[in-house]
């Protein structure tokens, strides 16, 4: 506990490029960029595979690989292969690890939509694309958001680990603190990362409330 007071009470930790606000912003920036890239790749792919029901094997492979691949190993290998020095290579493993949960949940969400609902939409004269965007996506939204939430939390965690290969952000406090035996900063960094993960979790719970149609979430009873 004293270590926490040492860390958070030290005014030097609140300003400059190594200060808490700057590191926090960095962490959020990397996470948002990585999440955006993985969304751009995984959501259309998941929609396509779920809607056409082709290429489901890809999803199974992605799901298994995502859990089995060791994060730290992937981060170290990719950065070593691509080259050290700039920030952007470090984002590759973050994107790679965020894709599977988004892809799998988008696919499962679309595939799991009630067959009758899909038929009814076609029966009403909607075309394939319209069925997808107006019926399947809204109904699948809870699962898609769940995938995004898992991915976001994964990205925040992996970005912390990636400080080991030179990424900025809150992980710096942990890695540098361990290297220099500066435990107040290590523990302080860990607490900040944990808080950030909790806030991400909270944001996605709120998004779920705001974005999911009341008819789907059944918060409004239909008689």
């Amino acid at each position: 506990m004293n270590w926490l007071i040492d860390f958070f009470g030290n005014s030097a930790n609140w300003s400059g490029p190594d200060g808490i606000p700057a590191r926090l912003l960095e962490h959020i920036e990397f996470s948002v960029v990585a999440l955006a890239f993985s969304m751009i790749i995984a959501i259309p792919l998941g929609l396509l595979i779920g809607h056409t029901r082709r290429g489901a094997v890809l999803v199974v492979v992605a799901a298994n690989a995502a859990r089995a691949l060791p994060t730290l190993g992937l981060v170290v290998l990719i950065v070593l292969l691509v080259g050290v020095g700039t920030t952007w290579p470090v984002l590759i493993p973050l994107v790679a690890l965020a894709i599977p949960p988004i892809l799998v949940n988008t696919y499962e969400g679309i595939r799991g939509v009630d067959e009758d609902l899909r038929d009814a939409a076609y029966g009403m004269g909607l075309r394939g694309g319209q069925v997808l965007m107006k019926v399947l996506v809204p109904v699948a939204l809870p699962l898609i958001l769940l995938g995004l939430r898992i991915a976001a939390i994964q990205v925040v965690a992996t970005a912390t680990v990636a400080a080991y290969v030179g990424l900025g952000g809150l992980g710096r406090y942990i890695i540098d603190g361990l290297a220099t035996k500066d435990f107040p900063s290590t523990i302080g960094g860990a607490v900040l990362v944990a808080l950030l993960a909790l806030i991400v979790q909270l944001i996605f719970s709120l998004l779920q409330r705001v974005m999911v149609s009341p008819g789907v979430s059944q918060r409004v009873k239909v008689r």
Partner: peptide, 14 residues
């Protein structure tokens, strides 16, 4: 489950 593992390891070290 949402807590990053590295952060939890660190907090447990003391």
């Amino acid at each position: 489950y949402s807590l990053p593992s590295l952060a939890v390891f660190i907090v447990l070290i003391p």
